[in-house]
C-alpha cells in the first residue's frame, strides 16, 4: 500500500492528514486553542488502539470484541505502579507491555480455539471479566477509578506533563505502530495471518499450523493496545474500569470498520471521524448518539471498505 504512487487519491489524503496532525500543536499554540490539542491527543491514542485492533480484525479476520481490555490493562499497570510510588516510566511501561502481552496470550490461547460468533463472545466475556476485576480492586479505587498524581517519569528524556511533548510522543508512537504493522502484514508472518483470514482450512491443508500464528498476531495486537492504554492513563491522569467496558471495545471496532478494515491508515481516519463527530454533535444536543448511530449505519451500509474504500481500490490484496 505504501508502495503505490503517492499521487493517488489515497496517498494525497493520507499525506494531508499526517501533515495536519503534525502541525496541530503549532495551530494550537498560535490560536491558544488548547482544546484542539487535548482532543487530538486523545484521538491519536485511540487511533493507536484501533490500529492494533485492525491488525487482528482487518488483516487477521479475528473479530475481537474485547480489545478495550488492553487499554485498561496498560492503563492500570501505569496507575497501580504510580499509586505504589513507582513513577518511573522505564518500569511502568515495560510492565504495561508485559502484562498486556501476557493477558493477550492467555485470552488468545483460549479464544482462538473457537471461531465466528463464539470467538466474539468469548473475547467479550474476558474483557468484561477484566472490567469487573478492576471494579473490585478496592485498594485501587474500585468502581470510581484511580487518580494518577504523577505522570510516567522518563528521567528528563521527555516530559509527559508538557502537552506538546506528550502529543508528539503519541504521534510518533502511532506512526511507529503503523509502520510496524505495515512490515508485519507484508512479511511471511503477515501472509500466513491473511491467508488464515481468507481460507483457514486451506492454510492448514497446505501445511500451516495456523493457530500459533494467529495467537502470535493476537499477542502483538494486545501489546500495542496496552501501550495505548499506558498513554491514555497518562493523558487523563486517571484510570477507571470504564475504559474496559464493552462499549469501549465497540467504539474501537467502529473506528476500524469506519476507517476501512485491513487498511493501514484506516483506523486513524476512523478514530478522527468518530471522535470529532462525537465532540461536535454533543455540542448541539445531549442526544448526539441518535444522530451518530444512523450516520455510522449509512457509512457501513453504503461505503463498503469504509473511508479507505472511498479513496479508491488498493493495489494489494
Amino acid at each position: 500500500m505504501m508502495k503505490q504512487s503517492l499521487l493517488s487519491v489515497r496517498g494525497i489524503a493520507i499525506a494531508i492528514m499526517l501533515l495536519l496532525l503534525a502541525l496541530l500543536p503549532v495551530y494550537s499554540h498560535a490560536t491558544g486553542n488548547i482544546f484542539a490539542l487535548t482532543l487530538f491527543t486523545r484521538i491519536l491514542i485511540y487511533a493507536l488502539a484501533a490500529a492494533s485492533l485492525n491488525l487482528i480484525m482487518g488483516f487477521g479476520g479475528m473479530m475481537s470484541f474485547g480489545h478495550a481490555a488492553y487499554l485498561g490493562i496498560g492503563g492500570y499497570a501505569v496507575g497501580i505502579l504510580a499509586h505504589e510510588g513507582i513513577a518511573s516510566g522505564f518500569v511502568q511501561w515495560p510492565v504495561a507491555i508485559a502484562v498486556s502481552a501476557l493477558f493477550a496470550l492467555v485470552i488468545g490461547a483460549l479464544s482462538l480455539r473457537t471461531r465466528g460468533v463464539y470467538f466474539i463472545m468469548i473475547t467479550l466475556a474476558f474483557a468484561q471479566m477484566a472490567y469487573y476485576i478492576a471494579a473490585g480492586m478496592a485498594r485501587y479505587g474500585g468502581d470510581d477509578g484511580l487518580t494518577i498524581y504523577k505522570r510516567s517519569d522518563f528521567a528528563g528524556l521527555i516530559n509527559l506533563s508538557d502537552k506538546v511533548q506528550f502529543y508528539y510522543l503519541c504521534f510518533v508512537l502511532l506512526l511507529a505502530a503503523i509502520y510496524l504493522i505495515y512490515r508485519i502484514v507484508n512479511s511471511r508472518f503477515g501472509m500466513v495471518v491473511q491467508g488464515a483470514r481468507s481460507n483457514e482450512k486451506r492454510m492448514q491443508a497446505i501445511g500451516f499450523p495456523t493457530y500459533r500464528y494467529q495467537l502470535t498476531c493476537f499477542v502483538i495486537a494486545g501489546t500495542l493496545c496496552g501501550i495505548a492504554g499506558a498513554l491514555l492513563a497518562n493523558n487523563t491522569d486517571f484510570v477507571s474500569p470504564a475504559i474496559m467496558y464493552w462499549t469501549r471495545s465497540g467504539d474501537l471496532m467502529v473506528m476500524v470498520i469506519l476507517g476501512g478494515m485491513g487498511s493501514l491508515f484506516g483506523p486513524v481516519f476512523g478514530a478522527i471521524v468518530l471522535l470529532v463527530l462525537e465532540e461536535l454533535l454533543s455540542q448541539f444536543t445531549e442526544y448526539w448518539q441518535i444522530i451518530l448511530g444512523p450516520m455510522l449505519l449509512l457509512i457501513v451500509l453504503f461505503a463498503r471498505g469504509g473511508i479507505d474504500g472511498m479513496l479508491g481500490r488498493r493495489t494489494h490484496d
Partner: peptide, 13 residues
C-alpha cells in the same frame, strides 16, 4: 508452507 517456519516479521514476503 514448506520453506521453514513463518515467524519472520520484517522482510516483505
Amino acid at each position: 508452507a514448506h520453506a521453514g517456519h513463518s515467524f519472520r516479521f520484517w522482510a516483505p514476503a
